[in-house]
Design a protein around this nucleic acid. Sequence first.
DNA 1: TCAGAATAGCTGGTTAAAGA
DNA 2: TCTTTAACCAGCTATTCTGA
Length: 223
Amino acid sequence: MQSGLLIRRYKRFLADVEVEGQIKTMHCANTGSMLGCSDPGSRVWFSTSSNVKRKYAHSLEIVETATSHRAYVNTLQINRIVEEALVSRVIDIGADPLSDVTREVAIPGETGRFDFSVDEILIEVKSVTYEHGGVGYFPDAVSTRATRHVRALQRCREDGIRTILLFCASHSGVNKVMTADRIDPVYAAAVRDALEQGVEVVAFGCTVSPQEIAVTRSIPFAI
DNA sequence: TCAGAATAGCTGGTTAAAGA
DNA sequence: TCTTTAACCAGCTATTCTGA
């Protein structure tokens, strides 16, 4: 990875980064608001793709926050990191260790997809990058889609399917995860309802550096 | 069977249209 | 006139489909 200084993030998918005196426009694979992770002047790290079909060869990967922590903001890669952790059992959900991990499984009876199915357990992964006081909050903006996912997990649970909402705190300063009630009270209420109906909610923390991004530990989740 | 093309999904800001 | 709702858009990846 190379590093630079974030000039601005705009149009949701794009970011301008100053690298050795030049401004490079790169893809930012994070459709969230990136609250606290998109401050102009922040030190960032980016990767370079060999895919010649891409309009922008570089992808924004890591942002150094105002609290000197690092947040991994490439949400497209988060699921890959989680998959590695599931396979290596760093994330141990009690599933059959020999079972296959299936990505992007259709939500039974409706449109949309869950991130993983492992041993008939449905898992939806949410990336947590907004940190305050050591607590990671999700979501960082009102998200009707995230709420829909939680409700879908709850419906599947009511149908007898084991379901897990998995928060992956891709921010080195996060030691605990909570729902952001003040940002999206509807989502927070949906998570509380889902918990009461038996949806499991777990959280995991990551090591974030330009050399390695990996799920390393279980951390508490609190309502 | 393989390669290439097409499509779905991700998310929230913006804009246009519809309804109160 | 104001509020709400729906459609569209952005770039990329994974999956599915089609044709050779």
